[in-house]
């Protein structure tokens, strides 16, 4: 009886694996994390899997979604890392009581060279917004010697990112971490 049940369970699992989400998307620009606790400090890495039209990648730009703060980039040998800031229309107060007048809108790495047949990760540390059960999108623009990849497509409500040609890397915010 137990064996019968085990076989049934295994077969159902196999069915789900077959007709459920199939693993693909290795070709896209992705984040190393799929999910993280809301409100937490996280290290996020944007993974670039290939160049454009066979040519090496020279610039990686990441749009920082609204609500993400305390952005710090991990230095990367051979690349010049930097951020683009934007002034806030109305200054806000952060969790430590400090007044914030500008936010990081974009992180970039320039001047390096990542061959088409290699992959690399571009890492940063961020504080995620305190809004569980939402999805953050980190649109990425990848500039190469020849051509550009814009991993900036955001799926419409109810649609799967798998239908998109160049989907933006996504991060699902889970339940907040207990301190």
């Amino acid at each position: 009886m137990i064996r019968k049940f085990a076989f049934f369970a295994a077969a159902m699992a196999a069915t789900l694996a077959l007709f459920g989400p199939a693993g693909r998307a290795q070709a896209h620009a992705t984040l190393d994390l799929r999910e993280a606790p809301a409100g937490s400090y996280q290290k996020l890495a944007v993974r670039i899997g290939h160049g454009c039209e066979g040519t090496p990648t020279r610039v990686v730009r990441v749009r920082i979604p609204e609500g993400v703060s305390s952005v710090k980039l991990q230095p990367k040998p051979g690349w010049k890392a930097g951020v683009v800031r934007e002034k806030l229309a109305t200054p806000q107060t952060d969790a430590h009581g400090k007044t914030i007048t500008e936010v990081v809108r974009e992180a970039y790495w320039r001047g390096g060279r990542l061959e088409d047949n290699a992959f690399d990760e571009f890492a940063m540390q961020v504080k995620l917004p305190d809004s569980p059960e939402t999805t953050l999108y980190f649109p990425v623009v990848q500039e190469c010697d020849k051509g550009v990849h814009r991993w900036i497509q955001i799926p419409e409500a109810g649609r799967s990112a798998r239908e998109l040609k160049e989907p933006a890397p996504a991060l699902r915010l889970g339940a907040p971490q207990k301190h």
Binding site: A14, A17, L18, A22, R24, Q26, A27, G49, E53
Partner: peptide
């Protein structure tokens, strides 16, 4: 049945690598 399911699984879960582009 198990072999069939396994074979189907392998067939269907083709992991996409970078696609070909005209150079």
């Amino acid at each position: 049945v198990a072999a069939m399911l396994a074979a189907l699984g392998v067939l269907l879960s083709g992991v996409a690598q970078a696609h070909a582009v005209l150079a």
